[in-house]
Design a protein around this nucleic acid. Structure first.
Lengths: 157, 157
DNA sequence: CCTCACTGTTGCATCGTGCAACCGACGTCG
DNA sequence: CGACGTCGGTTGCACGATGCAACAGTGAGG
């Protein structure tokens, strides 16, 4: 391209690095916070529940794929959630067992997420609504790009 | 923005929720990826190293505060890094022992971070440089808002 | 010099995780 | 219709990260 192409490239690289950087910090801090706030729900549990809220009927193996976890890990975590009465198996048609939240699970989830949500809101203090909307859109776009390649085919609709 | 304030409020809330949502997924996926890629460096190690790169001379207790970790955890992790020859103690003046990367640590860090960086770059594919810059700025702003209040330069207490 | 607050370390328990082997059920093919 | 293969789920095992609490070392001040 032009001579400024190099500048742009360097800038982009710097920005990308900054993104990774922020992501690392936000991530670790978020995990630590979520851990501290455990209202009977661990961080992983909260993640799994979140996915189940958005995609009811997801099977354990799908959860594993979505979060890049081993089947055994998901099995155990889900086992715990079922034991707590927060998750149950839905009607199985075909292979595997679809999972869904129980009402109690939904309540627990709402409570847990509310605390994290408060943190997010606090960190968004001083942002305009437009900035928040833009940030949300960017983040979603970024997240969507990282989904497992075999997943986004048209079945969740 | 006076009367439609309710709409805006709801939209903002939805966006904030979306942000938390994306953050959870990105975070967990990132951790899982970083784990998978462990070139002798665990996820936590990479985080600590990152902080030391940006803030040489940080003490263990400061690392703990920055990442909301227990002193003992940091102590052990740092111990491991020292044993690997990636981190060493700098000259101590006053209390505690400032830490810094060794050249080998720097190399290891660069190698580990490069892999994650590649993932980030891939997820940024299709973004314009401006969008990337904006996203980086937003993320940084968001991250900065979550820093421990008592951490920056002089505590006013 | 003695005491105290601040750092760092260690023993212990727990949880999350991966791997590998195993089990069980669905689906397919002969 | 029955045997087999594949996939989803579970379990035994090991390990790393983490918090808590008790303890040790050290600088700062009285």
């Amino acid at each position: 391209m032009q001579r400024e192409g190099e500048h742009a490239e360097i800038a982009r690289e710097t920005d990308a690095r900054s993104i990774l950087h922020s992501l690392i910090v936000v991530s670790r801090r978020g995990v630590a916070d979520a851990r501290r706030v455990r209202s009977s729900l661990s961080v992983v549990d909260q993640s799994l529940l979140t996915h189940l809220v958005d995609h009811p009927g997801t099977r354990a193996v799908d959860l594993a794929a979505a979060f890049r976890l081993n089947r055994s890990t998901v099995s155990r975590q889900v086992g715990g959630l079922v034991a707590l009465g927060l998750v149950r198996e839905a009607d199985a048609e075909g292979r595997g067992r679809p999972l869904e939240l129980t009402p109690a699970g939904r309540r627990e989830y709402d409570a847990a997420i509310a605390l994290l949500q408060a943190d997010v809101a606090a960190q968004l203090d001083g942002w305009t609504d437009e900035e928040v909307a833009r940030f949300a859109a960017d983040l979603d776009r970024f997240e969507a790009a990282g989904r497992p390649p075999a997943e986004p085919l048209g079945e969740p609709e």
